[in-house]
Design a protein around this nucleic acid. Sequence first.
DNA 1: CTTGATCCTGTAGTAACTACAGAAGATATA
DNA 2: TATATCTTCTGTAGTTACTACAGGATCAAG
Lengths: 132, 132
Amino acid sequence: MIAIGEASRQSGVGIETIRYYEREGIVPKPARAQNNRRLYSASDVGRLRLLKKCRDLGFPLSDAKALLDLSEGGDEDCRSVKEMAEAHIANVRSKIDELKRLEGALSELSANCETGNVSCPMLARLRMVEDI
Amino acid sequence: MIAIGEASRQSGVGIETIRYYEREGIVPKPARAQNNRRLYSASDVGRLRLLKKCRDLGFPLSDAKALLDLSEGGDEDCRSVKEMAEAHIANVRSKIDELKRLEGALSELSANCETGNVSCPMLARLRMVEDI
DNA sequence: CTTGATCCTGTAGTAACTACAGAAGATATA
DNA sequence: TATATCTTCTGTAGTTACTACAGGATCAAG
């Protein structure tokens, strides 16, 4: 059983975030030592690591929690996992598209901007762009 | 001079958001009718549209405000505009990369998940992934 | 025994909105 | 004219997912 700092190091989840997950009921309340400090087991750390991975993959915390619950439940309903993942993939793809268009628009704007100009043509363009 | 609902329609900025921008000092306080309702001019709407564009391009509100101020100021300092845009482009590019890796990881996970399975292999994988 | 690291609880702040509640005025229809 | 439905007003609180204190207790090392 390890303290919260070590659990944070091993899981990659910040100390304050671990306590926040506990407050929100995302993870169960951990054991406590006589001195009232939180004590984490290997499986507690495992839970935190799974949460971290889901969050890094961009799942909202609510989905991450659902995934965690499924993974605890034993009778994991594969369909809902797959559905969640696929909805999320679609999401990610449209975000990529959006950002690509954005990148194009921005670099075009920036290219037209000669450093040193007093009246900035980039702002002028910005005022007119319709096709973002 | 138009009411806030019409200004919202013409600018694409939500009514509550317009009032929020006003509270935060992002846009100047508009004129008021005798009945105390806000009245917007064409240039008020123009300001809102510029803000909308900046926000759609992903600039944080603080940058959007700076851009707006520059565009009002007449003596627009082109350099700071260009710098802002370029910092933002770098940002956008790294976000795209991140999302692409993410998309790969997710679709690999999802592909390994046969709908109907009781014990979901995707969750098993999720528990092990290191290379996000 | 003192220093510094770690931990505790509880509260408040962050970004950028969004969503009410409750009241007043405006517009359209019967 | 009465009624009903919109739109707007102010002010406050909620959202997401943390992050940052403040003020105090405890622990480990020298």
